[in-house]
């Protein structure tokens, strides 16, 4: 006993895994900046409207087509609606669509990936389904889906909620495949590890095994695909809105604002600029965030 106590005590407390990840993440300057920028954008679009006196749908026809001024820093549109307020409202929709669609794709992808990797019987069937989905032409199908289901959903949930549900579902069920593939690969490798064997030998059930042992270990690829999923969903939603098949005109999103601005491109080019910049900056920051997360969560790179 005394010998043990006499041993030199480690002076620094043990470092947790998340601490290591945070340190690695911090050292990736682009990722840190990307994270901060994304956070700022999210805060700006969600908290900004509380402090901004104009409503995104308030029409002041006398003040239409104004340039930038102190009252309207980004000017007003062809109906005199304040562009800054519209940008914030559009950002709310774009960011929420991005995050919700990403969550949906992530849940679907992880579920299918874990199932395929863990249960050998399901593997073949689920992976063939994944391959099949990967062979579908996604953008045309998205367009077709939006066209087909817009009216029934509008009737059921109202125009705004209906189109939101439609677009989120459409993006979600067409973008889960990469996550499923990555998760399945990791689960297949994890299943052969000793700790899984140990857990099984003390009688862990399948459900507990997946939630307690498998899922925490595949969190890192899931988080990386989460960030990339947000970027993908925001771009897809904007593309749909830009093609005129997304949200209705009185319910702005960044893509829709860009689409509306194209008609006035010759007279007011700055109206094209702001929504485009907002989309690009958001996607860029999220992509950098994902890049940094991938480095930080990979234990082989960490500590180098």
């Amino acid at each position: 006993m005394t010998e043990l106590i006499n041993q030199p005590i480690p002076t620094t407390p043990p470092r947790s895994q998340w601490r290591d990840i945070w340190d690695q993440f911090k050292s990736h300057r682009g990722a840190l900046l990307g994270g901060i920028v994304f956070l700022m954008i999210v805060l700006a679009v969600f908290i900004g409207p509380w402090f901004w006196p104009y409503d995104a749908t308030f029409i002041d026809i006398r003040a239409r087509n104004q340039g930038p001024s102190w009252a309207h820093p980004l000017g007003t549109d062809q109906l005199g609606r304040d562009m800054l307020a519209r940008m914030m409202a559009g950002g709310q929709t774009s960011v929420s669509v991005g995050i919700t669609a990403m969550l949906l794709a992530l849940i679907l992808g992880s579920l299918i990936g874990v199932m395929a990797g863990y249960f050998r019987k399901l593997d073949n069937l689920l992976m063939r389904t994944t391959d099949l989905f990967l062979a579908l032409p996604l953008l045309p199908l998205l367009l077709v889906m939006v066209l087909l289901f817009r009216e029934p959903l509008n009737a059921a949930f109202g125009p705004e909620t209906g189109i939101f549900i439609l677009i989120v579902t459409a993006i979600g069920i067409t973008s889960w495949m990469p996550t499923a593939r990555i998760v399945r690969g990791d689960v297949l490798a994890l299943k052969e590890r000793e700790f899984v064997l140990a857990a099984r030998s003390i009688g862990t059930t399948n459900t507990r095994m997946i939630t307690r042992h498998i899922l925490p270990n595949v969190m890192s690829p899931i988080m990386v695909s989460a960030t990339l999923g947000i970027a993908n969903a925001i771009i897809t939603e904007s593309a749909l809105s830009f093609l005129g098949l997304g949200f209705p005109p009185d319910f702005p999103t960044w893509g829709r604002l860009l689409f509306d601005a194209v008609d006035y491109m010759q007279q007011y080019p700055e109206r094209v600029l702001w929504p485009g910049l907002a989309i690009s900056l958001t996607v860029l920051s999220v992509n950098y965030l994902g890049d940094g997360l991938r480095d930080a969560l990979d234990p082989r790179i960490r500590g180098r």
Partner: peptide, 23 residues
């Protein structure tokens, strides 16, 4: 390449039109 990958083509296209066709 990160920028080229992140900026959607419908924005770069419109931007090019504004700069090179309109202006």
């Amino acid at each position: 390449s990160m920028v080229g990958f992140s900026v959607p083509t419908f924005f770069t296209g419109v931007l090019l039109i504004v700069v090179f066709s309109v202006n």
